[in-house]
Amino acid sequence: MRTSIAAALFRHLILATGAVLMVLPFVLMVSISLKTEGEIYHPQFSLLPTSPDGIENYVAAFAMQPLWRYLLNGVLVCVGIFLAQALFALPCAYALAKLRWPGRNLTMAFVLLGLLIPPQVPAVPVYIMLWKFGLLDSYAALILPSAISVFGIFLMRQFFRTVPDDLISAARMDGLSEVAIVWRIMLPTAIPGLIAFGILSVVGHWNDFFWPLIAIQTPELATPALGVMFFVTAEAGTNFGRLMAAATVVNAPLVIAFLIAQRWFIDGLTMSSMK
């Protein structure tokens, strides 16, 4: 008790230092993105830009590369992937959680096995497969390989298991088909789980770099993370002001969404580890 004030101060001192280290990269990113070339390389570092000309970086970033297109691609790919994952995972999760059928235990075992496989492992064969079907370098190449999420199946199954059996019995008595039960009864009760999974999926694919790097050649098809790479030019020397402007634009949607819906984000992103 005697040291409580000192202890509290110590706690805040350490945590605040940590907090500064955590946010500093974001702050510097925005700071540099608002500076002119001259300011950036000025030997005297200052956090705030001295002139408003740095805003030019953003104009240039959008002019130099189809940044809008990258963002749009990101939205398209993330939405497409999430919809496909939900469409396939939900009925399967329901069958695994609530129906008795031959093959269920085996299917569940394969789902658990699938959870162990990191996403980079299927890359080579999936690449070959897409090439065979002539699908490389297309939206399909970005969306299709992620259309199924065994984690999504597993997670939604866990959620569905908590739905009382009586509710499903009641729905059957009320005349719902099994397909209708999935979408009208199970889905609404598992909305929190689906949102958390959706955040996990969207954050994962917005930020993914490995697969778009492999699958995409055409700059117009690049996702945001891949698009940033096009701002790096070895020959002419990278313009860091513009690069940081692009980085800010790419990071902004998720960071803003996180700050608005922290609880959901933290739940969703920690869930990935909760296998």
Binding site: P164, D166, L167, S169, A170, A171, M173, I185, P188, T189, I191
Partner: peptide, 12 residues
């Protein structure tokens, strides 16, 4: 028609 012990009302 069936009435269940838990009533099984759709919560949402």
């Amino acid at each position: 028609s069936m009435v269940f012990q838990s009533y099984a009302l759709y919560p949402y």
